[in-house]
Design a protein around this nucleic acid. Structure first.
Lengths: 376, 376
DNA sequence: TTGTAGGCGTTATCAT
DNA sequence: ATGATAACGCCTACAA
């Protein structure tokens, strides 16, 4: 009966020496066939409880753990998904913060600065956290990838094609990011944290940004502000444009505008401009918290009290909102929930490929919420 | 000759329909054997240049990409490493920040708060960035894992044992984290970002923390500070203790001490205590930037000018150092370089298992550097 | 309910 | 230099 191979290491004890036990070893130890062991290990029904016991003991005794590669080879599932942080240099959906291109930041070379920036973004931290948590119950793990250059995008595609991951979670894509389209074209499962570009059929989650802007405007109006200003993000980021549009519409009056770049420094610069243009302003809305924080610094520098003289509202409810003094009133984006939803959509799509004519992609829209703290 | 399977999809074009082409398909298209195709794909020598051409064309024509699982099965390499963020709840090597347990932070449930905190830690962002960059040229990808509970630690072990990753990069471990020991005991390749607990034989990288503390003290002394205070991290974090020890030794005088928890709020609390105890202090050292930032907020609140009345020095040179006003003078930790070194060590260890009696683990020690900005 | 047997796509060891 | 031919460890019809 012995195949001859592997002289039967009767070790047991589970610890780390020598070759790892295989299904075959367990089967021999339990006196059953590989198929039965496999069934037990994978929790398939139709297994005699008694045999089940025996097998489980054998598994424990041999210290058996299934080989992931072998399993993947036949199931065609890797049990991993790519968590892709995308966006070429500037302008992610929301994320591109990074505290300015200061001295001493991000290593000596400046290469890979993108990765450094995005990972210091409080917004992105929330995404990762939400993704990891949602993935855990499914036993799936995230593989981190950056994609801010053509070569890297190709790498992501290749990785998925090779079966390194079953699908991709895309975050930080700006309007013109080619990656979503590439994935869609290749028929690879992917979910976006943002609205896809027109014509791209992709599952995605998104926030009702416009409504968020409205919330900010109404709050400022309600507390008596009448001379409003707003600091937007990069023009090519749709999310930012919508926030500003909502703000402008709900303000119902002239709003002084300045464009920032989602960084603290950018917020400072924009605030200086606005202050020069309209020294009597009494309410400011920034398209993200980091810029709002920058605005606060400049306002204080100019002797304005917050919120007494000027009220400030941020966006995201990132860690910057509570690190800033005063703590920021801000429009909260339920990032963790959105991330969890991305995971749900992706895992579903992995099992149920999208077949273009007939069924379309699914979208999940979330609502922002005003969080009132001290700045407004 | 045809095995019968897969009626020969002569598609070409590379795009995404149907079953993925295999070595077999390429071999048939090129009129050679699988073995030859494999050799070409893997860049092995001993291949006739002419044949090489033909095969490469066939690869391009069929859109072939190697199947990762199949390859892993035989090579016993996954091409992935686990990037494990470890530490049970409080106190990572350096990282545990998180801006205080404020309202609205980290989702609704509070579960998974650890992941949320650590990922908003500017220190950790630099680690990830460095790791990803160093991994890229090797074609290896990082799988993100958190391990702040027994179950999760077991999961990490299991993942490696199953061959999901070839080794582990451990960051954020505090002195009593059991994970490093578990990995060492199981003979799994692992590298720590920190000094291992006594008796644990593990490759690691670390900073000369004590020297960092000395740099801070000398700088304060040099600029004329004489009434010094210091804010340490959690007592169980060795790195923090060493920083404080170095500071104390180089100060050569009494230093008022307070313990923080590496968070902004913790820094604020500690600073209040110190101010009450020693209102005339003129120099403060904090064991990380976030606490230094908190200290600055409180000092200003109490009317102290920085650095004129009180000089402040932080540690890490994280993004908090430049987000703070004034910008922090701080002790820089070359995190990206250290991360790259971790990768180097791990990749080496994967190819060259540690055999206890005879050769020992390798350690790589880095030097801190003072970065002078505006706070001191 | 359990066992048998074939195949997933690669790499690697042999001859040739 | 190239081509057969075993493994690698697992899942899954299919048969019993």
């Amino acid at each position: 009966m012995n195949t001859g191979r592997g002289a039967g290491r009767g070790t047991g004890a589970g610890a780390g020496a020598g070759a790892a036990p295989t299904l075959e070893d367990v089967a021999r130890a339990a006196g059953v066939s590989r198929a039965t062991v496999s069934r037990v290990v994978n929790g398939v029904r139709n297994v005699d409880p008694a045999i089940q016991q025996v097998v489980q003991q054998a598994v424990a005794a041999t210290g058996y753990v299934p080989n992931r590669a072998a399993r993947s080879l036949v199931t065609r599932r890797s049990g991993a998904v790519a968590l892709v942080v995308s966006g070429s240099g500037a302008g992610s959906t929301d994320g591109d913060d990074g505290q300015g291109g200061d001295d001493g930041q991000g290593g000596h070379g400046g290469r890979g600065a993108f990765a450094g920036r995005v990972f210091q973004d409080p917004f992105f931290g929330r995404v990762v956290s939400g993704v990891v948590r949602a993935l855990r119950p499914a036993g799936v793990h995230p593989v981190l990838m950056f994609a801010d250059a053509d070569e890297e995008r190709a790498q992501v595609l290749g990785y998925l094609t090779q079966g390194g991951a079953d699908g991709a979670l895309l975050v930080g894509t700006h309007g013109r990011d080619p990656l979503p389209g590439m994935l869609a074209a290749a028929g690879l499962p992917a979910v976006l944290f943002a609205r896809p570009a027109d014509g791209e059929l992709l599952d995605h989650v998104d926030l009702h940004h416009r409504h968020g802007g409205e919330l900010a405007a109404r709050h400022l109006l309600a507390r008596g502000c009448r001379r409003l200003a707003a600091i937007g993000g990069p023009a090519e980021v749709p999310a930012s444009r919508e926030r500003m549009a909502g703000f402008g519409a709900a303000a119902g009056r002239a709003v002084a505008l300045a464009e920032g770049d989602f960084t603290l420094d950018g917020g400072e610069r924009a605030m200086r401009l606005l202050l020069a243009e309209r020294p009597d302003l009494d309410g400011v809305f920034a398209a993200n918290d980091l810029m709002a924080q920058g605005a606060c610094l400049v306002l204080r520098e100019h002797g304005r009290r917050i919120p007494e003289d000027v009220a400030v509202v941020g966006f995201d409810d990132s860690s910057a909102a509570v690190a800033s003094r005063p703590r920021l009133t801000t429009v909260r984006q339920p990032v963790e929930d959105m991330a969890a939803e991305m995971v749900r959509l992706l895992l579903h799509r992995v099992d149920t490929p999208l077949r273009p004519p007939g069924d379309g992609p699914v979208a999940s829209l979330f609502s922002p919420e005003l969080v009132v703290r001290d700045s407004a």
